[in-house]
């Protein structure tokens, strides 16, 4: 398969089988894999908070309400993995996206119109992950389903390079790799595409409640194997 075809395959669909049919090469520990591709992360509701005043009896009087969301965003994800066992790969994964922080105000006691105030953030994550290749008889010789889980560091930065907050990112999910080109005797052993779906839990960061909030994430990437 040519390089052009490999790229096209990534863009169109991951389920497309490569035309060449060769046995899946045995991947020995120590093999390196590098991948990069777009990542979409769904929105996360980061909690709500009332702007309260205090009555003479000590009870709250709500001046207005607010709820905070981190909007969905498409970014870039890059990964480098090394096969540590025949079915186990260790990865270091970095991602970058620019989600909007959205704070919605409502229920103003003096009838101020609610607004959805926004500010663009830069979100960086770096985490370590384990990828376990699941034995699957029905998968083709070049197809490798896997499950993955990881943990790492999350950093939310305001556009003006003001660090807003750091936090922790946890990810777990599953995916599939499709080898498009396999060249056992060359330095570049193969080229393929990968797709995975994960649950991404972001702890702290800009979340006003300091809690952990889960979003779906989908990644498609092109990888090369050495």
């Amino acid at each position: 398969m040519t390089r052009r075809r490999a790229v096209a395959a990534l863009a169109v669909a991951l389920a497309v089988r490569a035309s060449a049919v060769r046995a899946q090469p045995v991947i020995v520990p120590g093999r390196l894999e590098i991948g990069i591709g777009p990542q979409w992360t769904g929105h996360a509701a980061l909690g709500s908070r009332n702007a309260n005043e205090t009555t003479g009896a000590g009870s709250p009087f709500t001046l207005f309400s607010s709820s905070t969301d981190l909007a969905s965003a498409t970014g870039l994800e890059a990964r480098i993995g090394v096969r540590v066992l025949r079915r186990l790969e260790a990865e270091v994964v970095g991602s970058y996206a620019t989600p909007s922080l959205v704070i919605q105000t409502s229920a103003d006691s003096e009838s101020a119109p609610g607004v959805a105030a926004k500010e663009r953030l830069r979100q960086f994550t770096i985490h370590g992950a384990a990828v376990w290749y699941v034995p699957a008889r029905r998968a083709g010789a070049r197809t490798a389903p896997f499950v993955t889980a990881g943990v790492g560091y999350l950093r939310h930065v305001h556009e003006k390079d003001v660090l807003l907050a750091g936090g922790t990112v946890y990810e777990a999910g599953a995916g599939i790799k499709q080898l498009l080109v396999s060249r056992d005797r060359r330095r570049l052993k193969g080229v393929g595409v990968r797709a995975d779906v994960r649950a991404v839990a972001r702890a702290k960061g800009v979340a006003p409640d300091g809690g952990t909030h889960v979003s779906p994430a989908v990644t498609a990437s092109l990888f090369v194997r050495f």
Partner: peptide, 11 residues
């Protein structure tokens, strides 16, 4: 009475 329609970040 009104709200500013963007999030103001305090550095």
């Amino acid at each position: 009475v009104m709200f500013v329609d963007r999030v103001i970040v305090v550095p």
